[in-house]
Amino acid sequence: MDNVEPVSRCGFVAIVGRPNVGKSTLLNHILGQKLSITSRKPQTTRHQVLGIKTEGEVQTIYVDTPGLHLKEQKAINRYMNRAASSALNDVDVVLFLVDRDRWTEEDDLVLRHLQGVECPVILVINKVDRLAEKNALLPLIQQYSEKYKFADIMPVSALRGHNREDLEAMITRYLPEGIHFYPEDQITDRSERFLAAELVREKIMRQLGEEVPYSMTVEIEEFKAGPRLTEISALILVERAGQKKILIGEGGSRLRQIGSEARRDMEKAFDCKVMLRLWVKVKSGWSDDERALQSLGYTEIK
């Protein structure tokens, strides 16, 4: 009997959903390492991030996206919605993440963006490990299945790993045959410079209250990579002097804590010692200025 050569598959998978539903957590756990930053605050993810997983003959290229949200109060909100909706173009599969306990207006917004999508859409019901009644799952699946013609539905726990391997196997069935686009050991298209800025922003998102994180961005001014030490200088921009005071903290204590936590994560990610310097500067109105956003790396999504 002739040996059958394994089929090479490669394709793009967009992960979409409303803010704070677990898209970045799912991606990180599929990859087995931290790539997209996470926090409990909505709109933590601001950019499209590619996460590449290669196992044998299968290469799956995940596109993590900002959460689609109803309010577009500022230029940065409009940018995030464009980044999310544009991910639906030219992908092979869409994962639509929803929560197990409530369907919102923003979920309906995502559904509207899915109209006209020609590739398979898999509904992923997240956080099912938190269902109080396990027998409530089947009625929930039935209820959600009536909202759209989904190719498949998979209940998961992105955080706990429930059904994650089954979801990956399901995705693989929809990937087209073809050669791999990226080297086997590459996990993202983003630079270490980008990841450093994101890690600083994550620590601010996690540590501070509601106002400051949404009026803040991080710009890497210096990134010197060496074999044993990487030197990084990061500028944190806020919109008001009061926000700068909060971010720095009494005697610089808050900024030191943010820097310490970010540096530890960078050393894990870059596998070397890191010297991290942080500064805070007020740049009024940056989040509602299209030109300022582009200069800060929020490049226009076509």
Rank of each mutant, 00 (worst) to 15 (best):
D185Q: 09
K281M: 08
M1I: 04
G67S: 09
Q142H: 07
R160Y: 05
E146V: 00
Q48M: 08
E261L: 14
L229E: 00
S284G: 02
R193F: 00
Q257E: 15
F150V: 11
K23E: 03
L293Y: 06
G249H: 05
R277P: 00
V128E: 05
E267I: 03
K127A: 08
E177V: 12
N3R: 10
L235Q: 11
I232Q: 09
A83D: 02
M275I: 02
V13N: 06
F270R: 01
R102L: 05
N135D: 15
Q59Y: 08
D166E: 15
V58P: 13
Q59G: 05
D2L: 15
V282N: 02
Y62W: 12
R240W: 05
L276A: 06
K74A: 08
L195V: 01
D2A: 14
E219D: 15
D166F: 01
K244E: 13
Q73Y: 08
I248R: 02
D99P: 05
G249M: 10
K147T: 09
Y144M: 15
S8E: 15
I15N: 05
V212P: 03
L123H: 02
Q243I: 05
V218G: 08
F150P: 13
D92P: 02
M154N: 06
V110Y: 12
E211K: 14
I153T: 14
E5P: 00
L123I: 10
L27Y: 05
I15C: 07
E267W: 07
E184Q: 14
K203T: 02
H69R: 12
R263W: 01
T38R: 11
I187V: 15
E221Q: 15
N77S: 11
L276F: 01
G56P: 08
R263K: 10
H113M: 06
R193C: 04
R240N: 06
I171K: 07
E221M: 13
R78N: 11
L70M: 09
I187N: 05
Y174N: 12
V156N: 05
Q257N: 11
R102D: 13
